[in-house]
Amino acid sequence: MSLSTAGYLARRAAQKERVRILYRRALKDSLNWAVHRHIFYQDASDLRERFEANKHVEDLDTIDHLIADAEAQYGKWRHPDPYIVPWAPGGSKFTRNPPPPRGVEILHDYGKEEND
């Protein structure tokens, strides 16, 4: 009995994590699709409603099925060119103009003393 309870709880926890990460990705993706903030607000609340609609589903297999379904939908509607924070991998500033290594100093007044 306790083993099956532990198994149930583990499966529930895994499902909850999957849903959280799916919601996070979907929310970010709706921000990618939305051109303006007010459009995003509407999209986000629609997305939230779609998650809330299945809030009280109890059956584990049904939940798995719903999550797989939603993940497939997310995969289908993913934005081809999402916004990436500039310094992050894939961003426009990624590894550009890195800071000089420690102990290296840049002389901004190089050669000035001879001319003065």
């Binding site: 959280r20 990460i21 919601y23 996070r24 929310l27 986000a44 939230r48 990436i84 961003g91």
Partner: peptide
Amino acid sequence: DSLDVVEIVMALEEEFKLEIPDKEAD
């Protein structure tokens, strides 16, 4: 609830111009 927490973390990401990997944000 857990989805609200996801929204808060996303708001924090936007406030500080961060990109937090999904597993860490969770």
